[in-house]
Design a protein around this nucleic acid. Sequence first.
DNA 1: TTAGGGTTAG
Length: 650
Amino acid sequence: MHEIVLKLVGVCRTAKLLTQLHSLTIRTGLLYDTHLAAKLTELYVELLPVHNARKLFDEIPHPSIYTCNRILQRFCGNKRYEEVLSHFSSTFLFEKPDHFTLLFVLKACSALNALNFGKTIHGLGKKHGNIDSNMFLGSGLIDMYSKCGNMDDALRTFEEYSKPDIVLWTTLVTGYEKNFKPDEALAVFTGMVMTRGVIPDPINLVTVVSACTQLLNLKAGKNIHGFLIRKGYENPLPLFNALLNLYTKTGSIEYAGSLFRIIEEKDVISWSCMISCCAHNGATDRAISLFDEMIYKGVEPNSVCMISALQACEASCNIEKGRKIHELAFQKGLERDILVSTALIDMYMSCCAPNEAIMVFDRMLNKDAVSWFTLLCGCVQNGMANKSMQIFCDMMASDIQPDATMMVKILGSCSELGVLQLTCCLHGYVIRGGFISNLFIGASLIECYAKCGSLEEAIEVFERLTDKDVVIWSSMFAGYGIHGQARESIKLFHRMVTDSTVRPNKVTFLSILAACSHAGFVEEGIEFFNMMLNEYQLMPESKHYAIIVDLLGRTGELEKAMCIINQMQSQVGPHVWGALLSACKIHQNAEIGEVAARNLLRLDPDHAGYYILLSNVYAVDGKWDDAAELRSSIKEKELKKITGQSVVKL
DNA sequence: TTAGGGTTAG
């Protein structure tokens, strides 16, 4: 009888048969058998709704601790963690839980972030036995504290163990790494390496490499790579993938490529890492061909990999390939993934196809803050001011709240657009959302108002900020500069130096110099340039030089400007030569103008504007043949100067 | 007749 029932349990797949078997075993007393009871318990969880499963379980006469654990284990396996806790609370009121029980419950506490419940389990463990003798319980406890974000208790638990094994060490390192404390993670790892008898294994090293990735510490990661080669671990794929990720994030495309080549059995993660590495490090065509190769080899793409491939299309403006990947994502049902849809919106927006992006967005069943934000920034990027305002209003109406980082980006987009009305809306939200004292947002608002033409509002935001940092001050100098008020900008600079402890940086001087240049304050500009060099010992960059060349150019001191350029230690950027060339045109100096223009065309040979500037220089100097020759070479090369445009918001 | 640590993402 017992054998027959056991066989029936083995083939039972329906709730009806299960209920019949249950009644039979109750009637015949077979449920006293622990093995049979455990098997039936598994089936209750698999085939019945929760309350029925619990009801039948409660009817088992005197279930053994093993049987009780089985139901917890099954709930855990099915990620039904709330049921683990509730079942534990009701069943183990009078039962004495064992180490297995506690482990399942701890797993549920970790998943549910139930710190207090977890602490009770820690207490129970201590009450019922010697914790130090059980490493399994130790790792469960450390894992639970880590996942609840409580690293102090995780460390205290770890210290309760006199001889922690490799898993215990790894759990602690992982805890720090996952809680974004990579320095502590590496410190614990160092402690582990110095402990006799504990040798890092591939799983342990995965976590350590992740910590290195957070720190962008390529050197430490490469040491680990060397160590694993020396140890000759067999195909540690997750470790290879973690290293690929480190090389990706540090832009080490060469290392990533050579590691990728030697991985024999690549999984979708290896491919995704390599595609992402190429997409983010300028090798977009290679990223796309890797994606094609992966599909050709029959590796099933997942959403992460689609996102990386879409980013490659976005970076290279390859809308055709982007559309093909979109089609594939649709076929695979991955378009439903909110991250994939957002990547599609990003791709279409960057490829100047806003309507296709909007179609993707409209089809999305669930939209989060990032998808709204991507759509909004994309519309701004494509010059669709009205649409972006409408999107902002729709987003607020949908109860989606942008966070501080997003507000900074939206404000940045808005300042590019220059629509005052949108800035006012965003300002209102900044106040209501409690972001007004956030310095990043403050600086963005100042810039935004200044660029939208309302210097008064910019000043008001500036004055209301009590703790102004160097970025806030610099934004205000730049704001005055945009409005041609260099005198005010300089006055404010002196106020900053005398009334605050803030020390100007390179950006501060760039703002002040730009203000001087805009208003034609030549002497003051040169004075600030010298102050930057001598008093604050800041090394000027190409942008600073461009302004100083522009200022000298205005007074016709072209030789002096040329001399400064020749003495530059940083690379001479196009703005510097451009400023010199413009000055040469005004002061009719074809000789220096030619030097400037030749350098500009070397930096960017397809820039039609530079040819036109040089031909103008020739023209004012009476060199009509040279001017004509240049104009015809523009035609030959089929270069077109992009026409300047202005927008007036009515 | 149950048990612990790991990789990719807007």
